[in-house]
Computed example of a mutant assay.
Amino acid sequence: MSDSINRWGGSATKAEVAPMIVVRRPLFPGVIFLALGVFGLVIGIPGIVFQLTAGSDDSPAFGILFGLGAVFLLFGLALAAGRINVYDRHYDVKSGFGKFRRREVDDIHTLRFGKQSNGGGPTFISLTAWNEQRKKQFMVFTNYRGYRQFTAWLDKRRPEQWAECERLGVSD
Results as ranks from 00 to 15, higher is better:
residue 1 M to G: 10
residue 2 S to K: 15
residue 2 S to F: 12
residue 6 N to A: 14
residue 6 N to Q: 14
residue 7 R to E: 14
residue 11 S to K: 15
residue 12 A to E: 14
residue 13 T to D: 06
residue 15 A to E: 15
residue 17 V to G: 15
residue 17 V to K: 15
residue 20 M to Q: 13
residue 22 V to M: 03
residue 23 V to G: 05
residue 24 R to L: 07
residue 25 R to P: 09
residue 26 P to W: 07
residue 27 L to V: 13
residue 31 V to F: 13
residue 32 I to L: 10
residue 33 F to I: 04
residue 35 A to T: 07
residue 36 L to R: 04
residue 36 L to S: 09
residue 38 V to F: 10
residue 45 I to K: 03
residue 47 G to K: 04
residue 48 I to P: 09
residue 49 V to C: 06
residue 49 V to H: 08
residue 50 F to E: 11
residue 54 A to M: 10
residue 56 S to L: 13
residue 58 D to T: 15
residue 63 G to V: 08
residue 70 A to K: 01
residue 72 F to L: 05
residue 76 G to I: 00
residue 78 A to E: 11
residue 80 A to N: 15
residue 85 N to Y: 11
residue 89 R to Y: 11
residue 89 R to P: 07
residue 92 D to P: 04
residue 93 V to F: 00
residue 97 F to A: 06
residue 97 F to R: 06
residue 97 F to D: 06
residue 98 G to H: 09
residue 103 R to C: 07
residue 107 D to F: 06
residue 108 I to D: 01
residue 112 R to H: 03
residue 112 R to W: 04
residue 114 G to F: 02
residue 117 S to Y: 05
residue 119 G to S: 05
residue 121 G to T: 11
residue 121 G to M: 15
residue 123 T to L: 08
residue 125 I to R: 04
residue 126 S to H: 03
residue 131 N to R: 03
residue 132 E to Q: 12
residue 133 Q to S: 08
residue 134 R to F: 12
residue 135 K to L: 06
residue 135 K to W: 03
residue 140 V to L: 00
residue 144 Y to I: 04
residue 144 Y to E: 03
residue 148 R to H: 12
residue 148 R to L: 10
residue 150 F to H: 00
residue 152 A to G: 12
residue 153 W to M: 06
residue 156 K to L: 12
residue 157 R to E: 12
residue 158 R to F: 00
residue 160 E to F: 11
residue 162 W to K: 09
residue 165 C to P: 01
residue 169 G to F: 05
residue 171 S to K: 13
residue 172 D to Y: 12
residue 172 D to S: 13
